[in-house]
Design a protein around this nucleic acid. Structure first.
Length: 467
DNA sequence: TGAAATGTTGGGGCG
DNA sequence: ACGCCCCAACATTTC
């Protein structure tokens, strides 16, 4: 009788789960365990929404396990200590888990490999970071060639390990924390279950994905998949997503345009790219990838930072996005770029401050992608936007929220402002301010900085301070 | 996955 | 009819 431990981390699902499958293959009895790691949970970069999403996901996984005659073992503490205890208690022969790429995870897992009979299985990304390298075996630093190499073979996505509804045998009497009832209360907007993840993906494939190219940047539209938190915690397998996409491409390419599918696929490959960057260059979590931008003398004005966080900058598009983030834990990707550009270029605040604030609020916050996005926006990372690419918050607003739908949804002070002024309300004359019940400086702030001035300031800041 | 500044072209008004 | 100017529209360069 062999007993195996399935250690659940960023793969909270049963279907197409390599580590789970391996544990099932090797063991007659399976112990599914999740370990609450105080090192991670007490970090400054945890968000309430993300924690809640994770709790919901674990609750839901436990329901699925119970239906199959098993249950989730919940522990709290140092993973090495807890796993060692669990091995002693259960006489388990092996521990199986999905490989993770963050610096903390790599070191943690290294110790576990040294002390315990542990085996890891790749799965966070469709392709392992070591599998997508230049001809000289060094990692790609630019997205487009990375993508081309990544795309050059996709055969490995043709097969999946679908998990049926078979029974799972789990021994009784294994000590476990009680799963709090609270964990069943779903997070608004993102109910966390494997079923919901698959439902969302199916809905997206059924239509929106074909309009993704035209709709994805429209802030007020529902043009994106909103799968990010599900991918973040592995409620759906990325390999399954690639499998379905490539199947769909084959199916329709004869008679329909696949451009939209490609564009969405590119976004997923950005995810692969940033996991690869973090894997090969773990220090990006502490400093700019590009050395010449490591010592920029950021202004770091606390009042400006507070205005940005609270959505009170006086630029409607920025404020709408920042309020969407703090009230829902999610922000449209276009808005992430615009707000990140504003913090770094217009306010000259250290990109790491913004990165941390996003981590503290995002339901999908993940170090690899969040860091990659911020370094890109600040112009200090791999394949970053050059520093002189500065977003204009007004033209971005006019372009991607043409009728102000997104702005008016999140910035109620502007609800009666005429369309003509919704992107730049400070241009309203006194009469219009009065009739739209939006006095600038009273009901809604003046812009905290003049963009034309800020743009020039940013250009000389980067130019003069890059070593 | 930018936007401003600068350059070029061509049509139309006008003397 | 012609030259001149203006400027919108588009293209290219620059930050």
């Amino acid at each position: 009788m062999k007993t195996t431990i399935w250690w659940i981390r960023k793969d909270i699902r049963l279907s197409d789960n390599g580590a789970f499958n391996e544990a099932i293959e090797q063991g007659d009895q399976i112990i599914p365990v999740f370990i609450l790691d105080p090192k991670l949970l007490n970090s400054e970069s945890v968000s309430d929404s993300r924690l809640k999403f994770m709790h919901n996901a674990l609750w839901s996984l436990n329901q699925q396990l119970m239906k199959r005659g098993s249950r989730l073992i919940l522990r709290e503490g140092n993973p090495l200590v807890e796993l060692s205890k669990l091995v002693r208690e259960t006489k388990a022969d092996g521990i199986f888990f999905e490989e993770n790429y963050s610096p903390y995870a790599k070191i943690r897992d290294q110790h576990i490999f040294e002390e315990l009979p542990a085996v890891s299985v790749a799965g966070v990304t469709g392709k392992h970071p070591r599998a997508v390298l230049k001809d000289d075996s060094t990692p790609y630093l630019v997205f487009t060639p990375f993508r081309k190499r990544w795309m050059s073979s996709t055969d490995e996505f043709r097969k999946l390990n679908e998990f049926s509804t078979q029974k799972i045998s789990t021994p009784s009497g294994i000590p476990s924390l009680k799963i709090p009832n609270q964990w069943s209360v779903p997070l608004k907007g993102f109910p966390a279950s494997e079923e919901e993840a698959h439902r969302r993906f199916d809905v997206f494939l059924d239509g929106p994905i074909f309009r993704y190219h035209e709709n994805r940047d429209i802030l007020g539209a529902d043009g994106t998949s909103r799968l990010s938190p599900y991918l973040r915690f592995g409620l759906i397998s990325i390999r399954k997503i690639y499998n379905q996409i490539f199947e769909l491409v084959d199916e329709i390419s004869a008679n329909r345009d696949v451009k939209s599918l490609d564009i969405w696929l590119y976004e997923l490959i950005w995810r692969e790219f940033y996991y690869s960057i973090l894997y090969h260059f773990p220090s990006v979590l502490q400093e700019s990838f590009r050395e010449k931008y490591r010592d920029l003398p950021w202004l770091n004005n606390q009042a400006d930072f507070l205005a940005w966080k609270s959505g009170l900058t006086g630029y409607p598009i920025i404020d709408a996005a920042m309020r969407q983030l703090s009230s829902t834990g999610w922000m449209h990707n276009r808005a992430r770029m615009v707000t990140a550009s504003f913090l770094t270029k217009d306010l000259l605040i250290d990109w790491r401050w913004g990165e941390k604030w996003f981590m503290q609020n995002l339901v999908d916050g993940d170090p690899a992608n969040n860091n990659g996005g911020w370094q890109w926006a600040a112009g200090v990372g791999t394949d970053a936007a050059p520093y002189f690419r500065i977003f204009n918050p007004v033209s971005q607003s006019k372009k991607f929220d043409p009728n102000g739908k997104y702005i008016k949804h999140w910035v109620k002070e502007l609800r009666n402002v005429p369309e003509k002024f919704v992107h730049e309300p400070w241009k309203m004359d006194a009469g219009t301010q009065k009739s739209s019940e939006c006095i600038i400086g009273k009901d809604y702030p003046h812009p905290i900085v003049d963009h034309d001035f800020a743009r020039e300031r940013a250009l000389s800041f980067y130019k003069n301070n890059s070593g």
